[in-house]
Amino acid sequence: MKLGSTALAFAMSIGLVNPVLAETVLKVGLIDPPAHIDVIASQRVADRVAELTNGEVKLEIYPAAQLGFASDMLSGLKLGTVEMFVGATTWLGAFETDFWVPGTLYVFNDQEQAREMHQSATFQAMNDRLVENHGIRVLAQNWDRGPRNFITTRPVETIQDLEGLKIRVPPQESWIENFKLAGAAATPMPLSETFTGLQQGIVESTEQASNWLYGNKYHTIANNLTRTNHNYEETGVMISERVFQNLTEEQRTAVVAAINEVAGWHNEQVAIQIAEAEEKMAAEGINIIDVDVDAWKEHFRANFDTIVEIVGYSDDLAAELKAQWK
């Protein structure tokens, strides 16, 4: 018997289901393509959860936005109509503004610091507010997404090359304002329209981690990869609080344990995938450009206080981040 968690709870309450034999099915949505490491890692979690719960809990993985785009799935988590979502915690800024912060360029020194910050007391307090105010629980946020780089139809070698560059950005204020302040023509565009937009010349550039760009074949329509390492994000594994509360304590513990067990392997694979993607792009004739990252970092960090004011990050979060800069 396969039941969603809400239906299962109701059926058990009226005695229609033997709780020993019941199977709880949780659908897990991602926007990433099937070959992306987040999808592969999610399947590993599903396999491990099945082991730890003796088949009581089954996670079904739905990549490539089959359950909707990120904003749709997050809204579903809040309403309890979507059970789980695996994706960048940055999207949570739609509910709690401080979560937008990884979308601010060069706010973290490197991936390790980004990961540590996401596991800090500051982010835990953000998570607590998310549960209380919006019914979304972040079970873990220690899966690296890899540094974001530019892929462009014309070479971008210096900060000055950003002037007037038509760059696709997520429809998130942090990204938009960063690039506007740098003189770029920031163009908010849904991810689902970005490939076509780049192909048709509506935009000249987009930016993501190299493995994501390669996996989605952006190198086939834009032949310049500029390695700026301008954003570091973490993937979060999120669940509807309604769904979470319908699990037994043992089942909750099993799900969280499985997610954390996979984290180290996941992060190793991210680094491998990025290196392989960049090697393949170079072999396929893509122009790979390395920049003076320290100069870019200095330039964008000079605008950080302005971004804080525009987006509305909390003063304490901004001060904590700046204190860690190097």
Score class of each variant (00 low, 15 high):
residue 75 S to A: 14
residue 178 N to E: 06
residue 218 Y to S: 04
residue 153 T to W: 14
residue 25 V to D: 04
residue 19 P to H: 06
residue 68 G to W: 03
residue 149 N to E: 06
residue 17 V to H: 01
residue 196 T to G: 11
residue 122 T to Q: 13
residue 170 P to Y: 06
residue 74 L to D: 01
residue 17 V to R: 00
residue 71 S to T: 02
residue 162 L to W: 04
residue 264 G to A: 15
residue 149 N to G: 07
residue 202 I to P: 02
residue 193 E to C: 05
residue 115 R to Y: 03
residue 73 M to Y: 03
residue 275 A to W: 07
residue 112 E to I: 06
residue 320 E to S: 03
residue 319 A to W: 09
residue 31 I to H: 13
residue 93 G to V: 00
residue 42 S to W: 02
residue 145 R to L: 14
residue 196 T to R: 15
residue 75 S to D: 13
residue 127 N to M: 08
residue 10 F to M: 10
residue 119 Q to A: 15
residue 279 E to N: 11
residue 212 W to G: 11
residue 160 Q to G: 12
residue 262 V to R: 15
residue 90 T to R: 03
residue 108 F to S: 08
residue 216 N to P: 05
residue 223 N to Y: 12
residue 232 Y to F: 15
residue 15 G to S: 05
residue 60 E to C: 08
residue 80 G to C: 05
residue 150 F to T: 00
residue 111 Q to P: 01
residue 57 V to T: 01
residue 114 A to M: 11
residue 35 A to V: 00
residue 27 K to S: 11
residue 209 A to E: 03
residue 183 G to Y: 02
residue 230 H to L: 15
residue 181 L to A: 02
residue 248 T to I: 11
residue 233 E to R: 05
residue 179 F to E: 02
residue 226 T to P: 15
residue 315 D to C: 05
residue 217 K to G: 01
residue 296 W to G: 01
residue 250 E to R: 11
residue 11 A to Q: 04
residue 60 E to L: 14
residue 114 A to G: 05
residue 126 M to R: 03
residue 202 I to D: 09
residue 119 Q to G: 14
residue 250 E to Y: 09
residue 231 N to A: 15
residue 309 E to D: 11
residue 317 L to S: 03
residue 93 G to S: 06
residue 85 F to Y: 10
residue 87 G to S: 09
residue 273 Q to I: 05
residue 171 P to W: 06
residue 289 I to S: 13
